[in-house]
Simulated scan of single mutants.
Amino acid sequence: MFDIELVSILLPAFVAGLLVLSTHVVLGQQVLKRGIIFIDLAIAQVAALGAIVSHIDHDIEQLPFSHVWMPALFALAGAGVIAWMATKFKGELEAFIGCFYVLSAVGAMLLLANDPHGAELLKQLMSGQILWVSWSQLLLPAIVSALILAAIAIKPDLLDGISFYFLFAMVITLSVELVGVYLVFSTLILPALALNKYLGKAKLALAYGVGVIGYIFGLALSASYDLPSGAAIVATLAISALLFRMTISRINQSNAEVTR
């Protein structure tokens, strides 16, 4: 039987997933190319830290759209710190970013230590609540995603310099609000990793395919078995990425045997 109520929940959640994928697949390939895997976790965690500060400071919480601009300020500041570290600690950058992530995570735990709703807020920021996303929440991410993709299309070298870190921060801020830290990391890394060894021209399109398949099956699994949506999508994204990676390895092996 066609369940309209279920579709009304899943459709905005799926669109939220598509919005996250639209920018994260492109940026994820750049993250893998630079070898700074922890940057997404670090920036996402810093953005979450901004959301926590907004939550515990009632004066800030009462300001309009504080749940958006406060995490954005923290994420941009975090991007500035990482951009500075990239110029000073090139050989150790990944280690420094990992430390930055851990300190941000510990800061979040300390700030919420005496908050009666702290555990629930922390869980929400980490795992996300994509199933409860409303259409109104998608407007700003849609506009920002479109502007960023247009900027990258017009000027691709934005991904090569320090500007990458600030584009990254803006994207991550909105994504954490929609899907949580764990899903932000998975959406960035897993599609990029699945196609990392692929040498064909359709690399970007296939990476989007990995993500779309992961989100479709993850949302369906979550809705069918009442599972946490973020965790379910991370699992199906991982399976989708693994299957694509294995298929590409076999294709590369077959091509190598043919050319011998």
Rank of each mutant, 00 (worst) to 15 (best):
residue 220 A to G: 06
residue 202 A to T: 10
residue 211 G to I: 01
residue 205 A to K: 00
residue 210 V to Y: 01
residue 228 P to D: 08
residue 221 L to K: 06
residue 210 V to H: 02
residue 210 V to C: 03
residue 235 A to P: 09
residue 217 F to G: 07
residue 233 I to S: 09
residue 221 L to W: 12
residue 235 A to G: 08
residue 218 G to L: 02
residue 224 S to W: 13
residue 206 L to C: 01
residue 225 Y to T: 09
residue 215 Y to H: 11
residue 220 A to E: 08
residue 229 S to W: 07
residue 202 A to C: 00
residue 232 A to R: 08
residue 223 A to G: 09
residue 230 G to H: 05
residue 227 L to P: 09
residue 199 L to F: 00
residue 202 A to N: 13
residue 200 G to E: 03
residue 201 K to L: 07
residue 208 Y to L: 01
residue 209 G to M: 05
residue 207 A to L: 03
residue 235 A to M: 14
residue 227 L to A: 12
residue 200 G to L: 04
residue 220 A to W: 14
residue 230 G to Y: 04
residue 214 G to P: 07
residue 221 L to D: 08
residue 206 L to T: 05
residue 209 G to H: 02
residue 220 A to Y: 13
residue 232 A to Y: 10
residue 221 L to Q: 11
residue 215 Y to N: 10
residue 227 L to I: 14
residue 208 Y to D: 04
residue 217 F to L: 15
residue 224 S to V: 06
residue 199 L to E: 14
residue 208 Y to C: 01
residue 223 A to I: 08
residue 198 Y to H: 04
residue 216 I to Q: 09
residue 233 I to E: 11
residue 235 A to R: 05
residue 230 G to Q: 05
residue 212 V to Y: 02
residue 222 S to P: 07
residue 233 I to G: 10
residue 199 L to V: 10
residue 213 I to Q: 03
residue 203 K to F: 02
residue 228 P to V: 06
